[in-house]
Amino acid sequence: MLTKTSRLFRTASFLSLLTLLVFGLLGCGAEDQKKAQTGDSMMQTSEGLVLEGSGPFPATLLARSNNTLSNEENQLVLQEISMELDKIIDLAGQLEVIDEKSIDEKSQAVADETGEEVSQ
């Protein structure tokens, strides 16, 4: 009986430890994934910062330059940053949100069906 209990106890302890180990590994995995997501768009090289998927300007130019750009190159970089900001405005403008009027109509239709009071 004692041996059987002891074996059971050992098995239970082993299971507990195993579960903790799985959780630990999962935790590490989640952390790595988070890091990978945030660091996805940039990487550090010996040349400096290079942005993936960027054209010749401005990121690679900045990285290649070792911070010694000519005035013209400076201006190109700044113009390119401005264009990248335009892209952000454009992307934000593409956001599709349900029309408020449509919500009102659906809400009214449901209220008519169920007899609920509509709060608008």
């Binding site: 768009s41 940039m42 400096g48 970089v77």
Partner: peptide, 10 residues
């Protein structure tokens, strides 16, 4: 500006 670019890209 390098940091700004990373921010914009992100």
């Amino acid at each position: 500006l390098k940091k700004d670019l990373a921010t914009i890209k992100s």
